[in-house]
Amino acid sequence: MAEGKHKKVAYYPGCALEGTGHAYNRSTKAVGKKLGLDLVELENWNCCGAMEVKNVDPKIQTYLSARNLSIAEDMGFDTVMAPCNGCYHNLKKAEYDLEHDGKSVEVNARLSSKAGHTTYEAGKVETIHALDWIKDSVGEEGITERVKNSLKGLKVANYYGCMYTRPRHIFPEKDKGPGSESTSKPHFMDDLLAAAGAENVEYPLKTACCGGAHSLSDSDTSTKLVLNLLETAEACGADVIATECPTCHTGLEMHQVRAEKVLGRKTNVKVLYFTQLLGMAMGLSPNEVGVNENFSDSRDLIKEKGLA
C-alpha cells in the first residue's frame, strides 16, 4: 500500500456521470477531496462508446477510447481514473487491442491523424478504476483512520457487475495473487467498506449481470435479472447493495420499481454507490454525496443507522 500513490490523476467521468449517474460523480469528487487526492478532469473528453458503439463497429469504439487516452498523455498524466465500469472497461479494452491487434492500431492511427490529434500508442497511460484509486492511494488503513461515522451494523451486499472483471485478458493486473484484485471473486469494494466498519454479507452474485445493456430495449429480461439480484441480496440479509457502476446502479433502481409495478414483486433493499457509503462514513452529509439524487430512497435507512 504505497502511501502517496495516485495523489494526482487524470479523471474521466464519462457521459453517465453527467446524467443519471451524477450522484456517483459528486460522491467520487467529495471522497477524493476528503482523502486529499487530486482529480484533474480530462480536457474536452468524448464518450467511450459504452455498450453500444461496438455493436455498430468495434474499431470505432477503440478509437473513441484511444482519443481519451491521448488527451491524458497530452496533459502529462500516466494514469487516468474512470469510476464508471463501462468507461473503465472500454479504456482497458482499447489498451489491450492497441497492444495486440494490428488492425486496431491501423484504424486508430488513421482516424486520429484525420481528426488531427495525438495517436495514442499502447503502454503510455494506465487506466484505473475508482476502487484501485482509493485502495492504492490510502488503502484500508487510510480509510479506517478517517472514519468519523462508522458503518457498523450496516449489512452490505457488494455488487461489481460485468465490466469490472470480464473478460479477464483485458485486465492483466488482476488475478496476480495476494493483494491483487480477483476476476472471479472481486473484493476491493468489500475491503474498503469493511475498513469503514460495514458488515459485508456473503453475496454470491457479485459479478452477475443486471442486463444493463438492454435495460430499455429488452426490459423484461433486465427486470428478471435485477429482481434476482435484489431478492438474493435480501435473502443474504443485506440492507443495502453497494455499487460501483452507474449502469448497474440505475438499472437496479429502475427495475426495482418496474418489478414491483409489472411483476408485483416488491423488494426493500436500498442501492447506494460505494463512494456514497465511504463519504458518509468519513463524515460527509448525505446531500454532499448526492443521496437525494438517487432514485432509490435510502434516507430512512441512513437515519436509522446514524449516518446522517
Binding site: 457521459c15 468524448n46 464518450c47 462508446g49 459504452a50 453500444e52 458503439v53 445493456a213 430499455l216 430495449s217
Partner: peptide, 19 residues
C-alpha cells in the same frame, strides 16, 4: 429494439462526441 438503441446512441456519439 437493441439495435435501434445502438444506432441512436452511436449516431449521437459520432455527431457530437458525447451522448
Amino acid at each position: 429494439p437493441s439495435m435501434v438503441f445502438d444506432e441512436e446512441f452511436s449516431h449521437q456519439v459520432f455527431e457530437t462526441g458525447k451522448i
